[in-house]
C-alpha cells in the first residue's frame, strides 16, 4: 500500500461544488467524514465551508474542535439575520469556515418550520465558497433527504452493520420517492406514488419505478420523461466507515452492484475508513482526528477516498463537456 496520495491536481472546477453527506443511520460517521474531507480540501488551498445541516443536534463544530459559534443557523431561522453568508465563521483551519447549526435545540426544532427549511434549501447555492460540505443528520424525513439531493456530490455514509445497510436502502428508496414527488405536478398521482413505494419495503425499485412512470406518462408524458432523466442522471457515492475486517471492505462494492442493477440509479463505491479508536480519543481531546494523526493509515484512507471522489467529479465534468460539445 502507498500512503500519502497527492490530490488530483488536474481537478479544476470553477463552479461551486455542493457535497452532501447522508445515509439515514445515526452515528454512521457523516460528521466525521464531512469535517475530515473539509479539512483536507482546505489544506489544498480550496475555499471550503462546512454547513451543519443537522438542525436538531448540531455537532460539526465539536468535530472541528471548536465551541459552538455565536452566530448560527438559528439566527437565520428566527429571522435575526437575512444574509446566510454572515453565518460562516472561521475555524482553527485556514480556508475553512463553518456555518453552524442552531445554538439551542429547542428554538431550532420549534422554529425550523417547513418554510424556513425550504428557504434554506433555496439559499444553499448562494453560500460563497468553492466547496460546500453539507453534514446531514440522521433520519429519512423530508429535510435530510431533500438536503441530500441538493448535492452535486451525493455521498452515502454507512457502517458495515446490517442495520446501517438496511437503512441505506431505505434512504435510497426515499431519494427516489422524493425525486418523483418533487417533480410531480399533479396531486392525484401522489396516491399512486405513495402506495407503490409502500409496497416496496424490502425489494428493489425497478418495477415500482416502471409502474409509476407509466401511470404518470399516461397523463403527463413530459413529466415522466423529465423524472426518468433526473433519476438516470443521479450518481451516488458510497463510503463505508468503521470497517473491522476484510469482509467489511467487500460490502461497499456489493451494495453498489445491487443498487446499480435494482434501484435504477448509478452508485459508485468511493472507499472505506477503518474503525480506529483514535477517532474517539482525539474527539475527547477536542481535536479532529485528521489533524492529530495526519500520517496514520486511517488518515490515508480519508485521502484516498477524497481523491477517488475528486477524480470521479473530474471524469463526470469531462463527460458532460463532451456530451455538450457533441450534442
Amino acid at each position: 500500500m502507498r500512503w500519502g496520495y497527492a490530490l488530483d491536481t488536474s481537478f479544476q472546477d470553477h463552479e461551486k461544488l455542493v457535497w452532501t453527506f447522508g445515509g439515514g443511520k445515526g452515528g454512521a460517521g457523516r460528521t466525521l467524514l464531512s469535517t475530515t474531507l473539509g479539512i483536507l480540501l482546505a489544506k489544498e488551498e480550496r475555499n471550503v465551508v462546512i454547513f451543519d445541516g443537522n438542525l436538531e443536534c448540531a455537532n460539526a463544530h465539536t468535530a472541528l474542535g471548536m465551541r459552538q459559534p455565536q452566530k448560527t443557523l438559528s439566527d437565520f431561522i428566527t429571522g435575526k439575520t437575512q444574509d446566510i453568508n454572515e453565518l460562516a465563521v472561521p475555524t482553527p483551519f485556514r480556508n475553512l469556515r463553518l456555518i453552524s447549526s442552531s445554538g439551542d435545540s429547542i428554538s431550532a426544532t420549534n422554529h425550523s418550520s417547513l418554510a424556513a427549511k425550504n428557504r434554506l434549501l433555496k439559499l444553499i447555492g448562494s453560500i460563497n465558497c468553492a466547496h460546500l460540505l453539507t453534514d446531514i443528520g440522521p433520519g429519512l424525513n423530508f429535510w435530510p433527504v431533500d438536503l441530500f439531493l441538493k448535492g452535486d456530490v451525493q455521498i452515502l455514509v454507512i457502517t458495515p452493520e446490517p442495520t446501517a445497510v438496511e437503512t441505506v436502502y431505505h434512504f435510497i428508496r426515499m431519494l427516489i420517492y422524493r425525486k418523483f414527488k418533487n417533480q410531480l405536478g399533479a396531486p392525484q398521482l401522489e396516491n399512486t406514488l405513495s402506495a407503490a413505494f409502500t409496497d416496496m419495503r424490502t425489494s428493489g425499485l425497478n418495477d415500482v419505478m416502471e409502474r409509476v412512470l407509466e401511470k404518470i406518462s399516461a397523463t403527463d408524458k413530459s413529466a415522466a420523461v423529465r423524472i426518468a432523466k433526473s433519476i438516470a442522471d443521479m450518481e451516488l457515492k458510497l463510503v463505508v466507515n468503521q470497517t473491522l475486517d476484510r469482509h467489511d471492505k467487500h460490502i461497499g462494492p456489493a451494495i453498489c452492484e445491487i443498487v446499480n442493477k435494482f434501484y435504477g440509479v448509478k452508485m459508485d463505491y468511493a472507499g472505506f475508513i477503518p474503525f480506529d479508536e483514535r477517532v474517539a480519543l482525539s474527539l475527547r481531546r477536542g481535536r479532529p482526528f485528521i489533524a492529530e494523526y495526519e500520517t496514520s493509515e486511517t488518515a490515508a484512507c480519508f485521502s484516498v477516498t477524497l481523491r477517488e471522489l475528486l477524480n470521479s467529479i473530474s471524469a463526470r465534468n469531462r463527460k458532460r463537456q463532451l456530451d455538450f460539445i457533441t450534442s
Partner: peptide, 18 residues
C-alpha cells in the same frame, strides 16, 4: 457471492424472489 442467500449486502435490498 453478492447474491447468495446469506450475503450481507442483499439484506434489506431485494426480495427473495428478485
Amino acid at each position: 457471492t453478492i447474491y447468495s442467500e446469506n450475503s450481507r449486502a442483499v439484506y434489506g435490498a431485494l426480495s427473495d424472489e428478485e
